[in-house]
Amino acid sequence: MSDFSPVVVFYILSESLGIWLWIVLALALALLVGITYAALRLRAADRSPARPLVMAAIAGVLTTAIFTFLVPGWSHAEISALNGPVDYVFAILFSMVPAGIVAALVFIIAGLRCASGMARTSKNLVGAIKG
């Protein structure tokens, strides 16, 4: 395994995925920006990130569970082809790619809603006090 350096893995991935590698990397970057933005908005609104995090975790786990059964099909195999813990670990690892995307999206949406909900509530409160 010693010959699988990060450079080698990068080249193998780029030859395997072609343009998709760049699409996935761009998506990952966009999601990272989205997560940071949502986290900053939550902080500005003085809201705890706990709720969006729990929602993201649930969505991530559910997506992982669903995709674990779909991943073998992507390789022209059936779920019954999974034979032993190593196969399941790899199926789960691959499922974590779509699960990560879903979890990130859920966190961003829930975080922004939570932050803007708070902002609306504070505005309403200020309005009510003033009024």
């Binding site: 395997s16 390789s75 195999a77 999974l82 034979n83 190593v86 196969d87 790899f90 199926a91």
Partner: peptide, 11 residues
Amino acid sequence: QWVSWLIEEKG
């Protein structure tokens, strides 16, 4: 193993 198949088919 499926993971060995995965290496053949995808890797």
